[in-house]
């Protein structure tokens, strides 16, 4: 853990607040009748702005959550070997889920 990781955690929290707010608004409150239509989602995910917003949400959410997990793990251990193993595992999970999520989002285009 270092200054950059901590700063990114703070930045990702701010981005999450904004992106999550927009995401919930557009998903649940923007349609006139209040009902979620698959067609609307497909249409929305065909635009660059929404894809960027969702990718941002995905990456910031994953970073924020995985950094939090790593931070909790560090509270209970001081072994450098365990730290490297857990960090590698979390980075792999992060990259894997990011790739999977981005692929899912781009699939609508």
């Amino acid at each position: 853990m270092n200054a950059w990781a901590w700063l990114l955690q703070r930045v990702s929290a701010v981005v999450l607040l904004i992106a999550l707010g927009l995401h919930i608004w557009f998903l649940h409150f923007s349609s006139g009748d209040g009902v979620l239509h698959f067609g609307d989602i497909v249409k929305r995910l065909d635009t660059g702005v929404f894809i960027t917003l969702d990718i941002l949400l995905l990456i910031c959410g994953l970073y924020h959550a995985l950094y939090g997990l790593y931070s909790i793990f560090l509270d209970f251990t001081s072994g450098s070997k365990e730290r490297i193993v857990v960090l590698t595992l979390l980075v792999m999970v992060g990259i894997g889920f990011s790739g999977f999520g981005v692929y899912g989002l781009l699939w609508f285009r």
Partner: peptide, 11 residues
């Protein structure tokens, strides 16, 4: 203090 077990451990 700029170490994992310095300030960065504080939650």
């Amino acid at each position: 203090v700029d170490k994992s077990y310095g300030v960065w451990r504080c939650h």
